[in-house]
């Protein structure tokens, strides 16, 4: 681990934020909550990168990625609301006819 204790603590905190955000993004049933989770995860990474004294290029890449994800995510969420009348994953899956359960072994 980084020798400097402060740096170490900062990185640990940022990784905790990343883990919490990632868990939300992967597990939350609501599309908007997923987006927020994704944003938290990326912010956590940016914080970690800053703590690790990464080059600016890496930070810029992170910020650009975050913006791109946010724009596309919002567009998807709006389209989901338009098409399904909901942004809750269970309802969307049900409306798709349980497509995720299609591949039961024959």
């Amino acid at each position: 681990m980084p020798s400097d204790l402060a740096e170490c603590l900062l990185v640990m905190g940022a990784i905790a934020l990343l883990v919490a955000g990632a868990a939300t993004a992967l597990l939350a049933p609501n599309a908007l909550k997923r987006l927020i989770g994704l944003g938290l995860a990326t912010l956590g990474v940016l914080a970690a990168l800053a703590a690790l004294r990464s080059p600016e290029a890496v930070l810029v890449a992170g910020v650009t990625g975050l913006l791109g994800q946010f724009v596309i995510g919002v567009a998807i969420t709006i389209r989901l609301q338009e098409e399904y009348g909901s942004i809750e994953a269970p309802e969307i899956d049900a409306a798709d006819g349980g497509s995720e359960a299609q591949d039961a072994p024959q």
Binding site: L49, R53, G65, I76, Y84
Partner: peptide
């Protein structure tokens, strides 16, 4: 419309993956 569901999954899982990649890049750089 089912493609939207797929896109959301792609975005979230891929987004987490991108975060991990960036973190990895930072750690390697350090």
């Amino acid at each position: 419309r089912a493609a939207l569901n797929g896109a959301l999954r792609m975005l979230t899982l891929g987004g987490v993956a991108s975060a991990l990649t960036l973190l990895g890049v930072g750690l390697i750089g350090r």
